[in-house]
Design a protein around this nucleic acid. Structure first.
Length: 492
RNA sequence: GCGGCCUUGAUCCAGUGGUUAGGAUAGUGGCUUCCCAAGCCACUUGCCCGGGUUCGAAUCCCGGAGGCCGCACCA
């Protein structure tokens, strides 16, 4: 199913759509979730809680979206989360100085030059405005963070560009009050904000995005602790920096140095397991191992979890070994103590991060769930992810079948996310339910009037069976139950 | 942000200076209907925004926004 078709279906069935669509000229990069989208998002997050956060015994927090300037000094975002720009004084055209110099001289420009150095380089190489031919100088920075002013004094603060800074900043307090020991994971679901230059592709690149992040704090001397052996047999696919693909177990990846330590391998296995539970097959999941020059400034090792969609691989999770970059930075700038006790040893913990994009993950799960046979399109979401769990229909709209169906619906809707529909023929209603990923449909027919049984129709097989109304509850509960802890995923 | 192409009901498409802007799909109401998008009747929703040319612009021109692709960016 193509990208466009998913976008269309997403809007049609109430999963997601452009923000403020009724107003012309609304900027790109923002989207609203409809009723089905909210349901899917909540269930994806809940699955993540079960199979990642709770299974691993992590803590979860919910931090503020606005953070003071100092936090981003320490995190490096103020200096590094920027792109250099130069604006032609004559005609107003905007260029990237590094690209202009590179084009003119044919030589690469060293990364992370200062503004003045860009101006010097442009002067030396005689770069001119591509539009009007004027001399260029005056490099400025475009920071991708949204700036906000707090209070009447408009004190400088920023909408967080990633959720993890709250976790780092809160870490010492959590460590003291929550009676935890290293290693410990701290998780957070929340919104982040990035002023992208070119947001594109609906859910794939947004200016306001939802993230589910995990920061694992550990003693670097114990990164190969036997406690992480449980995942050694889990097979994962890697795309190596040299462009080759390799499928190997976590244990092999550790031996070959593909992952820096067992801990990293364990968490890669954990997050891969989440996507398998979300319905993306192991063949469609891989970790792209980033070469040093492709890594973010804080990263000692980086793995992008990518999912194979019909138009290519899409990055869903950034997995980074951040070392002590973050806690060290916050310790320096804040003056607070970020070291903790680990069996009598004073440690500045290292961090391994799983930074998951919820919006694009939803998109990926939807796309990889789509099954089509001609006109018939089915979103075969795992039943525990389906926003609507059951639809209830009267077979026809007469002879008291509507009333009977309504009673069943009202009985179910307190326990399940149920939907009642009597509009259109029965086949059309099944088709609508299939597109909206509803795993079970209940039809109240003439036999129901006689013996109290209803038809239970399965989305994926289209098979029907008769069940009594009391039995419905247990059948639906079983159908929509989340994967049990300990029975799936790494270490299985 | 740069370059190319594009923008007509919720969706897909026709209309290329003067049309009551048309169709299909979807939707809603009704009729019909004993299980997989059947049929009949009725109805709702539209020319991306702003400026210009013209007696007259959905149609031509300029700018902006949005969309797709490529580049760049991507914590």
């Amino acid at each position: 199913m193509s990208f466009d078709e998913i976008v269309r279906l997403g809007q049609q069935r109430g999963f997601f759509f452009k923000t403020a669509e009724s107003y012309p000229n609304t900027p790109a990069g923002f989207l609203d979730y409809g009723p089905q989208g909210v349901g899917l998002k909540n269930r994806m997050v809940e699955l993540w809680r079960r199979v990642v956060v709770k299974r691993d015994g992590m803590l979860e927090i919910d931090g503020s979206q606005i953070l003071p300037r100092a936090v981003f000094e320490a995190s490096g975002h103020l200096s590094s989360f920027t792109d250099p720009f130069v604006k032609c004084a004559k005609c107003g055209s905007v260029f990237r100085p590094d690209k202009l110099i590179e084009e003119k001289t044919g030589k690469g420009v060293p990364e992370k030059l200062g503004d003045a150095e860009y101006d010097q380089e442009m002067e030396r190489s005689g770069v001119k405005c591509l539009k009007c031919g004027s001399r260029l100088s005056g490099t400025t920075r475009f920071n991708m963070m949204f700036k906000v002013g707090i209070g009447p004094a408009q004190e400088e603060a920023y909408l967080r560009p990633e959720t993890c800074q709250s976790i780092f900043v809160d870490f010492p307090l959590l460590f003291k009050t929550q009676r935890v020991k290293l290693p410990v994971g701290i998780a957070q679901v929340g919104r982040s904000f990035r002023n992208e230059i070119a947001p594109r592709q609906a859910l794939i690149r947004l200016r306001e995005l939802n993230q589910a992040e995990v920061e694992v704090f550990f003693n670097p001397k114990k990164a190969d602790d036997p406690r992480f052996d449980a995942s050694l047999d889990k097979a994962l696919s890697f795309r190596l920096p040299d462009g080759t693909d390799a499928r190997m177990t976590v244990g092999e990846a550790r031996e070959k140095g593909v992952v820096p330590h067992k801990l990293a391998g364990h968490y890669l296995a954990l997050i891969a397991g989440f996507y398998e539970d979300a319905g993306i097959g192991p063949d469609a999941i891989r970790f792209r191992v980033l070469a040093e020059e492709d890594r973010a400034f804080y990263s000692r090792a980086a793995f992008d979890l990518e999912a194979k969609l019909s138009w290519g691989w899409v990055e869903l999770v950034a997995c980074n070994y951040r070392g002590d970059f973050d806690l060290g930075g916050h310790a320096r700038v804040s003056g607070s103590n970020f070291t903790v006790d680990d069996d009598g040893e004073k440690v500045l913990p290292h961090v391994f991060e799983l930074s998951l994009g919820i919006d694009r993950s939803m998109f990926a799960v939807m796309e990889s769930s789509m099954k089509g046979e001609g006109e018939r399109r089915v979103m075969a979401l795992r039943p525990y992810l389906s926003p609507t769990q059951v639809c209830v229909f009267p077979l026809v709209n007469k002879d008291g079948l509507q009333e009977g169906a309504r009673r069943v619906y009202e009985d179910l809707r307190e326990s399940f996310d149920a939907f009642y529909d009597e509009s259109g023929g029965i086949g059309r209603r099944y088709a609508r339910a299939d597109e909206a990923a509803v795993p079970a449909c209940v039809t109240f027919d003439y036999d129901s009037l006689k013996d109290g049984t209803v038809t239970l129709r399965d989305r994926d097989t289209r098979a029907q069976e008769r069940v009594s109304v009391p039995e419905l509850r247990s059948r639906l509960a079983e159908l929509t139950r989340s994967p049990a802890i300990g029975k799936r995923g790494p270490g299985r």
